[in-house]
Structures are given as C-alpha cells and as structure tokens.
Design a protein around this nucleic acid. Structure first.
Ligand code: SF4
Ligand code: SF4
Lengths: 137, 137
DNA sequence: AACAAATACTACTTGCAAGTATTATTTAAT
DNA sequence: ATTAAATAATACTTGCAAGTAGTATTTGTT
C-alpha cells in the first residue's frame, strides 16, 4: 500500500518547491534538502518538466520552476504522470480490473477504499502539501 | 495499492482450497486451477505450511489440508505470514512510520484509509473469500 | 524391493525499479 | 572566447521479487 519511490520522490520534491513556488530551484538544492539520490533526482526532474508541472531553465543560473499555480496541481496528476494512476487503481489481488458482476469477498469493500484513496489524491493540491513538512524520518 | 504477487497467490490458493476445506489438495490441482507458476506455488505451499494455516502430507497420495476451520483464518494473517503486514502499513510516501505530531497534508486522510484497509483484511476470513470465485481475468 | 506420485530443498535465471557513471549541451559571468 | 555552473541524455549496475530447474526425500501401491 505504498506509492513507488518515484512517485514518492516526485511528491516530496514538488511539495518542497511549492513552499517557495515562484523561485527557481536547482537540482543541487533539492538533493541537499531532500536526501534523494542525485542522479535519480535529476532524471526525475527532466521527466517532471516534460510532464508540464515545472519547466527547466538550462545553463548557469538555471534550475526548475513551476509553470502554474501550485493550487492547480494535484497529487493524482503527479502520480499519474510518473507512474500512471492505473498502477494503483486495479484489483487488490493484482488482476486486470475489478468486476462488479462476479466479485470476490474483498471486492466491494476494496472498491470503496480505493475510491477514498483516489479522492484523496484528486483533492489534495501541491499547495496544500507544502503547508506541512514532508521530511524523511 | 496492490498486494505483492506472493500475497495475492496465497489468498487465491487458500480461497480456492477453502471451497472444499476438508479435502486434501495437491500442488498439481492448484497449479492447474489457478494458473500460478508450478515451482513458485510449491515453494509458497511450503511456506504456508510452515506458517501453520495448512499442513502438508508428503509422499504418494499427499497434498495439503487446512489445520483449522477456515472461519478462523483471516486475510490479514495470511498477508502477515508471507509479506509482513508492516509492508502495507507504513506511510504512503514510503517513510518509516506516520507521525501524528507533524503530519503532512496527506497523513490524516491516509491514516483513515489505511485503517479501513486493515479492518477489511482483519475482518475477512478465508471462508468468506471462498464463497465467491477469485478467478484470474 | 521396486516403482510412482507426491512434497522439500537449494541454486540459478529473469525482469523491473532504483541507483550510478559518463558525457554532451546550454548559458551567464568573466 | 573561455570558463563555470547548471540541465539533458544515454548507458551501465545493483537489488529484490518473481520465476525456473534439478535433485532429494517421503510414502502408498504393486
Ligand atoms: S472481485 Fe476480488 S479478485 Fe475480482 S477483481 Fe474484484 S477485488 Fe479483484
Ligand atoms: S505525515 Fe505524511 S509523509 Fe509523514 S509519515 Fe504521515 S503520510 Fe507520511
């Protein structure tokens, strides 16, 4: 019941950036603050840039900055961009899709919980995330 | 938001066996019915035997059989035995444990959902699972 | 005793996410 | 122009879950 590390990293990175949403953030800064492997983070930043949440400024004095208000970026969109939401939406038993017609004993309750999770992702913005620290314990 | 394949297989196997809870079931039968890789299933059966849900009968005419009423075996116990429940209980962002003191924006809602999931696992018995098919789509 | 049919054990292989290393490109400052 | 500091791209390595192979052991049937 966890997100992939990639999705996890993405949320932590963007949440951190969202504390100062208009500033330019360098990869170095993010690596230092968030304890994420340097090279992996950089690759991820490129991916997030291509997904449109942030844009990169190349060259000296470069970095990354949001392309739109952080109130308009939702957790669900980020997870979808890096992992695909489908990865988290399927049957709890790893099947293709839940069938409401011939459900197992877990199906109905699981479907409810799953809906809750999705709503949680869809209604939580990065701006909201940024209000509280997301620090590695 | 999925269980590991190992946990998934375990649930499917025991659910299937629980349809005829007093019979002896061979690995061959389970492989044929459940489309699970032969060798992997056999290894898993040994593990489940050691966990005490079933016991093996070796030799010709051997197989596996429940050690106690399937009403007394719960999904949570099975997941715990093969994966460890902790694997599914932690922070959604992959941290060590959720801190109620300094929570991020997801924490509270996530903790609620997580409790729901755990209750689902803890209150669903294998007997209950067996009432409905758990078939690979 | 020999055989057949089942489980048990140990080691190897594969696939994928995560992590690492290297080199190329971009651009501000000098 | 040169340099320095940043991002971009590509390929390689590691770690772990899942899958596979082969051999050993157990036990009922003949
Ligand atoms: S009925 Fe059960 S096994 Fe089938 S898709 Fe739904 S949760 Fe999965
Ligand atoms: S507060 Fe958020 S990041 Fe921290 S443990 Fe809870 S869910 Fe995870």
């Amino acid at each position: 019941m966890k997100l992939s590390k990639t999705a996890d990293y993405s949320l932590r990175i963007l949440s951190f950036m969202a504390k100062k949403p208009d500033e330019l953030h360098t990869a170095k800064e993010l690596v230092d603050k968030l304890n994420i492997s340097d090279k992996y983070l950089r690759r991820l930043m490129t991916k997030l840039s291509k997904s449109g949440f942030i844009k990169s400024v190349q060259g000296r004095e470069g970095g990354y900055r949001f392309t739109k208000p952080t109130e308009q970026i939702f957790v669900s969109q980020i997870i979808d961009a890096v992992d695909g939401l489908d990865k988290y939406m399927g049957c709890i038993l790893g099947f293709g899709a839940c069938s409401d017609d011939n459900p197992c004993a877990l199906h109905k309750k699981w479907a409810l919980v799953r809906t809750d999770i999705m709503n949680l992702f869809k209604t939580t913005s990065i701006a909201e995330m940024a209000q509280k620290d997301v620090q590695k314990i």
